[in-house]
Each structure stands twice: as C-alpha cells, then as structure tokens.
Amino acid sequence: MSWLQSREQRELMEQIKASRSRLYRIAFAWCHDAALADDLAQEALTRGLSRLDQLRESAKFMSWLSSILNRCWIDYLRARRSDVDDEQLSELPSDLPGPDSHAERQETVNRVRNAIAALPLGQRQVVTLVDLEGFSYAEVAEVLEIPIGTVMSRLCRARGSLKELLTEQVAAKPRLRSVK
C-alpha cells in the first residue's frame, strides 16, 4: 500500500506541476494580464484540489481543471459586470489593452495577440483551448458548458476574424504564409 500511495503521490505531483503552467498559458491567452492569469491559474488549482473527489477519470484531469479555470474567469468577469448573464459575457466585445505594453514581444507575436485580444470572449476562449491545448471540440464543449455546435460556430467566426484582423494589421507587411 505504501508503494501505491507513493506512486499516486508522484503522479499527482507530476500532473499538478504540468497543469499549472498550462492553466497559466490558457488564462494569459484569455486575459493578457500576467498577474491576473497567475491568480486565475492558482485559484483554479486550489479549487481543483479541494474537489478532486469529483474527478473520476484521471485522463480528463486537464480538461476538468480547464472547466474550473473557466468558472474562475467567469466569476472574475461577473465581479466586474454583474449586469450581464453568461451568454452575454461570451459575446462582450474585448476591452483588453492588448499586449503592446510588453516591449519584448516579437512583432508577429504582438500582432497575433492583438488580434486575439480583439475577439469577443467566447470566441477567444474556444480558439485558445483548441489551438493551445489541443482539446477536441467535445472537450471544449464540456469545459465551457456549451453545445458542440456553438464551439464550431465560435471557432469558425474566431478564425475568420483573426484572418481579417491580421490581414488589416499587416497590410503593409508580408502576407500570411501557409504552414505545413
């Protein structure tokens, strides 16, 4: 039994270590604020640790934590905008300042982050969960508590907007190139 506990503990440590940086990256992509992203990731982990008994499939650890992160993010937004519901929250236009203040960013990174910052929250969440975390559409639907059809339509609109925004931003710059 002691061996089992030791192995369980090691597995838990490894999952937690790995998930913290991943949660932080997702949160940063949503809010573009390093300190807030850190708070969100920390709070999601804290809430997750206190609810581990609710998780029945270890394979879903990351998507489960991401759904908690989403609730943390909604709680944060609600504290700022108590006059709107979840659906309205997802459609709120972005008020993010964009990452221009981060002088060390490379130009391309800046342009893409600016474009993502300009997306409505719901689209920003979907596109970052799919592209950064590689979640399936079904997992994103579960994380954000929305239908798969909504995931697909938001993703479609998000990428369409990103294409337009990046094309506008780089009108005098090299065009998007295909990537293998």
């Binding site: 390093a34 391309t108 893409v112 592209d131 990428r159 990537v179």
Partner: peptide
C-alpha cells in the same frame, strides 16, 4: 489559411510572460 491561423495562435503563446506579480 486556416492552418496558418492555427499555427500563429500557437506561436503567439509559445512563450508567455513570467508569472511575476
């Protein structure tokens, strides 16, 4: 174009700022 957008998003957050508060 869709693949490019997807790769650009991944690239944009390949390295994120330090969590320093």
């Amino acid at each position: 174009e869709l693949r490019s957008i997807k790769e650009l998003v991944r690239h944009a957050y390949g390295r994120v700022p330090d969590t320093r508060r």
